[in-house]
Write a protein that binds this DNA or RNA. Structure first.
Lengths: 108, 108
DNA sequence: CATATATTCAACCATAAGGTTGAATATCGG
DNA sequence: CCGATATTCAACCTTATGGTTGAATATATG
């Protein structure tokens, strides 16, 4: 299966998240994906390779075009991982924050 | 606020995720956190700085000890981000299930 | 005070990441 | 066949990352 490291790393770059967001609107060719970005087409191509290696997109070669499609499967693991920490921001968060605020007040 | 890039980047390293998991069990000093790792204490110290810069842990200096505590707040954004893609993996699952339902119907 | 402990700081090193440019490959449309 | 288009490959550069070792700083303890 896909490794959480790879998924998180792939997704940590804002350009790559933007590319995923674009593909969430529908499949697209490389140049279409590249259009909104300042960087070169080659740079976009590299980012797409990272996403592909992470299993987040899939490529269908149709003639000279490569049509990329979103494959969100690996994100399930991200969701599962972050879910483990949900209770830490829903539970007792205010008490913890207050604790450290108090400590900082005592110790400047 | 904290930036999603920083959070995702901080969390993409398995050692740092392990450190967060340790801190989910309770606050700890640097050497305690470092104990299970092969790497040097200095390397651990660096990882903790990355987590701290991302706002995922907070540090309370008590004498010569630094006591680190989990601060899961920034993970909310990760949860929110990944949630946007939930429908893409449930859709895919639905398609897969439909596929197998069809197979069973064809081949009982 | 002297020494041990906890932690960071600083310098350094190897490799990875993100970008560029230029050439190569493949396909499309006359 | 030819020229335009879509995309990758290859080489290169700069900076970031993750690790090391050794010294510095601060605090605890006999």
């Amino acid at each position: 299966m896909y490794r959480l490291d790879h998924t998180l790393n792939a997704v940590s770059h804002p350009a790559r998240r933007a590319m995923l967001a674009r593909l969430a609107e529908g499949s697209a060719r490389v140049t279409e994906i590249a259009a909104p970005f300042e960087m070169s087409l080659n740079a976009v191509s590299k980012h797409l390779k990272v996403l592909e290696a992470a299993g987040l997109i899939e490529r269908e070669k149709r003639g000279r075009d490569h049509i990329l499609a979103l494959r969100a499967g690996p994100l399930r693991q991200v969701s599962a991982w972050v879910h483990e920490y949900e209770r830490f921001w829903t539970e007792r968060l205010d008490r913890l924050e207050a604790h450290f605020r108090q400590k900082r007040k005592e110790n400047p």
